[in-house]
């Protein structure tokens, strides 16, 4: 998996949920979406990249969501 595409997709998901007024709902929304629709190798490739390079390429909502809900991804 090309990780730059995964970062782009995660950021798009983050952008959608960022406007939710309920922050917890937004972060849960991002994580649930990735869990429900991303094949495991996509998730593991993204997480491996974040472990190596940090969360700086992600927008705030995507980054917070993955940090908060990493356990179920």
């Amino acid at each position: 998996m090309h990780v730059e595409n995964l970062i782009k997709m995660a950021n798009q998901i983050g952008e959608f949920f960022a406007s939710f007024p309920d922050r917890e709902e937004a972060l849960d929304g991002v994580a649930t979406h990735i869990k429900k629709f991303w094949e495991p190798r996509m998730r593991s490739a993204l997480l491996a990249h974040l472990d190596a390079a940090g969360y700086g390429e992600l927008n705030v909502t995507a980054a917070d969501a993955i940090r908060t809900h990493r356990g179920r991804l």
Binding site: M1, H2, N5, K36, F37, W38, E39, P40, M42
Partner: peptide, 18 residues
């Protein structure tokens, strides 16, 4: 129990060898 690859994901996975 986990979701599979979508078509664009299949292309990506093909290009990265899996």
């Amino acid at each position: 129990p986990e979701p599979g690859l979508r078509i664009p994901n299949m292309f990506e996975a093909a290009l990265t060898g899996s």
